Amino acid sequence: MADKLDLLISDYMTGMLQVKINSRELWITRQKNEERIGSSGTSSNLAPQERRMMILEEDTKLQKMKDQKETMDNLMRALEGTTIKEILTYKFKYRLSWENVGIRVRLEESAARKQYKDFKRKFLKDGLWASVFE
């Protein structure tokens, strides 16, 4: 069964994390604009672009997703040319079974799975996103 990190890695590797970021930006800016329509409320002295930026910066869910994507971008650059990056790519981008991942990276299925679990524990759960799992 996939945990939060598996889902995050899958979303990142398939490009869905960026889609979710774009969708969230569109949704929150549309939602805020609709609230202002027909209101006799006060008008701010901000230009529409400045108002949009403020709305985006105030959304904690959006900022969390952007931080996760930036962290994963940096991590993937650091993993360039490693077996674990190949494992992540085959497993999450191409959605291969663990058996096929093992074949592609020339490891036993159990060894590929163990490398992934070790990577996830050492670099993500105990490191980058330790606070998520407390």
Rank of each mutant, 00 (worst) to 15 (best):
T60S: 10
L75T: 08
E58D: 12
K32Y: 12
E58Q: 11
T60N: 10
R24P: 01
S43A: 09
T42H: 00
I9W: 04
S10H: 10
N33K: 15
S43E: 14
K66T: 01
E25V: 03
I37K: 15
P48D: 07
L46E: 15
T29L: 06
K20Y: 15
E50P: 00
L8K: 09
L56K: 11
R24A: 12
I28P: 00
Q31F: 13
L62A: 08
L17E: 01
G15L: 13
I21L: 09
S44H: 10
K69I: 01
A47L: 14
L79D: 03
D6V: 12
T14S: 14
L79N: 05
L26G: 09
N74E: 08
M53L: 12
I9D: 00
L62S: 02
K64Y: 09
G81I: 05
L46H: 11
S40K: 00
D73H: 04
S40C: 00
A78F: 05
W27Q: 13
K61L: 14
T14M: 06
T42P: 00
Q18L: 12
M13P: 06
A78L: 05
S44M: 04
Y12D: 03
E57Y: 03
G81F: 07
M54V: 09
R24N: 07
P48F: 10
D67W: 04
Y12R: 06
K66E: 07
N33V: 01
K69A: 03
Q68S: 05
E57P: 00
T60I: 08
N33A: 15
I55M: 03
S44C: 07
L75H: 03
N22Q: 13
E50A: 13
Q18R: 08
L8I: 09
Q68K: 11
K32E: 15
R52N: 13
I28T: 13
S43W: 08
M72V: 03
S39V: 00
N22R: 07
K61R: 09
L8S: 04
